[in-house]
Nucleic acid binder design. Structure first.
Length: 417
RNA sequence: GGAGAGGUGGCUGAGUGGUUGAAAGCGGCGGUCUUGAAAACCGUUUUCCGGGCAACCGGAACGGGGGUUCGAAUCCCUCCCUCUCCGCCA
């Protein structure tokens, strides 16, 4: 959630920043008004309540001393009617404010480029040169089926479209990748954690998926539980409602989970192959830091994901997302796009975001900053999406006969020499 | 799934419907003492919101929500969670 106090302190700056992210100017004004209405309602209620508390204390004294209480009781009763009304007004204002505030996205950092969509993203740099082939490189689904690594039809049989099954070397490579990535991240100082794949509503509100994006999530109706769309949700929320000590920061964690997405708005896009699946595996990085450290840690996380791709010998590029492509919770995002020879293009394989205190405010994650409590900064990034890494390996390491070489760093994980 | 017990501050653990935001102990922090440390002693130690430059003032919070009452940690309802026993089970 954005800092509502900024509405009063510096409305101009705040609204300018939010409008860069496409938030309606009118909505921001409305938010400010609601916030002020709530404060007024609160003051009103608290004044009445203070009077009530004072009178109640008197009441106790009267009773002890055996005085006549009928007059006092009449006063107190009258005040109580007002309190009930004031409380109701406050409750409604609170609800209205929350409804708006929880649906307002984070403010982009000042250095995030303006833009409408992914076409306006700005390339930072390319890493490794895309390979050239003396033949026309195939797309991954063809290679996957040719080698018997992935079975798309049987995935559909078991579940529905956009589910797949890995067999043999395909399945083994997947597992090898997960292990390799976790080991790699651990060596970079990220502690491995293993977390639930189902979370409650509160957790998803904390990281920003709810209330706005419920349609994108798989929900277990009987229990009000949701399948996680990314490990970012359970890992970031590990410290929900906590006040961490300063020396416990930064927390740098890595987790492997399955991720589940309805891909509600993606009909017709990437329908073939395993670029866009309802269930996919991902190794995630999550950091919780003091505000002044988050930029450094952000760079570390981007570097970690890029180095991982480099170790896998996968050509890629780093891209700064423009305001229009930035996610709901992110103040800044760098995407890593891997080269896919079959598609002759770069495709997203990792996304690293700094949400600053946006998620921390929602999830109430703070640290003891000397005497006072300060919101932490939270960051997350994929490192990497396993399915898309498989795709990249298949397409970049393919031979003319359709066979696929295995990146050297994975050999130990597969018992190859 | 069945039966029972219970949820109070960083932890352990008291709590009679009325100055109880909450005894006591532990821990933490500050101090006295000490060459230093320990021990002992003294003091201090929850969080959120609103107002104020500040000292401070007001409100809220004893698992969540609701109710009874002038007044609820304390009584009632409901939901959630934890523990013990039984059953089932990777």
């Amino acid at each position: 959630m954005i800092d509502l106090k900024l509405l009063q302190k510096d409305f101009e700056t705040l609204s300018k920043k939010l409008m860069r992210k496409g938030v309606d100017a009118e909505l921001i004004v409305q938010l400010k008004e609601k916030f002020e209405e709530l404060k007024a309602a609160k003051t009103n209620f608290e004044t009445l309540q203070a009077a009530q508390n004072a009178m109640s204390k008197e009441f106790g004294i009267y009773k002890r001393e055996g005085k006549d209480i009928s007059e006092l009781k009449a006063k107190v009763d009258a005040n109580k009617v007002k309190i009930t009304e004031a409380l109701e007004v406050q409750r409604i204002k609170q609800e209205e404010l929350e409804q708006i505030a929880m649906a307002v996205p984070n403010m982009p950092d000042d250095d995030v480029p303006d833009g409408a969509d992914e076409d306006d993203n700005i390339e930072i740099k390319k890493v490794l040169t895309p390979p050239t082939f003396p033949f026309t490189p195939k797309e991954h689904w063809e290679l996957a089926e040719h080698n018997g690594w992935i079975d798309f039809e049987r995935g559909v049989k078991l579940a529905t479209s956009r589910f797949s099954v890995s067999f043999g070397m395909g399945a083994r490579l997947e597992r090898a990748l997960v292990n390799f990535m976790l080991d790699f991240n651990r060596e970079r100082g990220f502690e491995e954690v293993s977390v639930p794949a189902l979370v409650n509503r509160r957790a998803l509100e904390g990281t920003g998926q709810l209330p706005k994006f419920e349609d994108d999530l798989y929900k277990i109706d009987s229990q009000e539980m949701f399948l996680i769309p990314t490990a970012e949700v359970p890992v970031t929320n590990l410290y929900q409602d906590e006040i961490l000590t300063e020396d416990a920061l930064p927390k740098k964690m890595t987790a492997y989970t399955s991720c589940f997405r309805k891909e509600a708005g993606a009909a017709g896009r990437d329908t073939r192959g395993m670029i866009r699946q309802h269930q996919f595996h991902k190794v995630e990085l999550v950091s919780i830091s003091k505000p002044d450290e988050s930029d450094t840690i952000f760079d570390e996380m981007v570097q970690c994901a890029s180095d991982l791709l480099k170790a896998l010998e996968l050509p890629h590029r780093l891209v700064t997302l423009c305001t229009g492509d930035l996610g709901f919770s992110a103040a800044k995002t760098v995407d890593l796009e891997v080269w896919l020879p079959g598609q002759n293009t770069y495709r997203e394989i990792s996304s690293v975001s700094n949400t600053r205190d946006f998620q921390a405010r929602r999830a109430k994650i703070r640290f003891k900053d000397g005497k006072k409590n300060t919101l932490v900064h939270t960051l997350n990034g994929s490192s990497l999406a396993v399915g898309r890494t498989m795709v990249a390996i298949m397409e970049n390491f393919q031979n003319e006969d359709g066979s696929i070489d295995i990146p050297k760093v994975l050999h130990p994980y597969l018992g190859l020499h």
